[in-house]
Amino acid sequence: TYTQGRLYVLQAPPGDLLQVHRILELEDTDDKEEEAILVTNSILLYKVDMAAKDLVLINDLHDQVLFLGCNQSQYRSADEFPQLKPNCVYFTDDEAYVWKYKNYCRDIGVINLENNKREEILPQLWCSWPNPIWVTPNLARMNWGCTNR
Rank of each mutant, 00 (worst) to 15 (best):
T40G: 06
G109I: 04
D28K: 14
G15N: 04
V65N: 04
A51P: 01
C88D: 03
V48K: 03
V98S: 13
P86I: 01
L26P: 02
K32H: 09
L55I: 03
S128F: 05
Y8L: 00
L26M: 13
L26H: 00
F91A: 04
D60A: 09
A36E: 07
M142W: 08
M50C: 10
P132Y: 04
V48I: 15
L66F: 04
V98Q: 09
E25A: 12
D94G: 07
L66H: 00
R6I: 05
Y46H: 14
I43Q: 01
I111H: 03
D16G: 03
T29R: 13
D54F: 04
Q83D: 12
V135D: 00
Q72T: 08
D93R: 07
R141L: 15
E27W: 04
I23S: 04
D49Q: 08
R118Y: 10
T40A: 06
N138R: 12
P82H: 09
L38I: 02
T92C: 02
D107W: 03
L55F: 13
D54E: 14
D16P: 05
D94S: 11
Q11M: 14
L10F: 02
L122D: 01
T3D: 03
L55W: 05
Y101D: 12
R76S: 13
N131A: 14
E119Q: 13
C70G: 12
R118P: 03
V9H: 12
P137Q: 05
D28P: 04
L24D: 06
E33R: 10
F91M: 06
R106F: 00
A140F: 08
D16Q: 11
A140D: 14
A96V: 11
L84D: 03
P13R: 09
R149P: 10
K117C: 13
L7Q: 10
E119N: 10
T40H: 05
K32G: 06
Y101V: 11
I37S: 04
A52V: 07
I37V: 15
R76A: 15
F91C: 02
A140I: 09
C127N: 15
D54Y: 07
L139G: 08
F81R: 06
L7K: 09
L66G: 00
T29D: 11
D60I: 05
Y90D: 04
D63M: 06
V20R: 00
K100N: 14
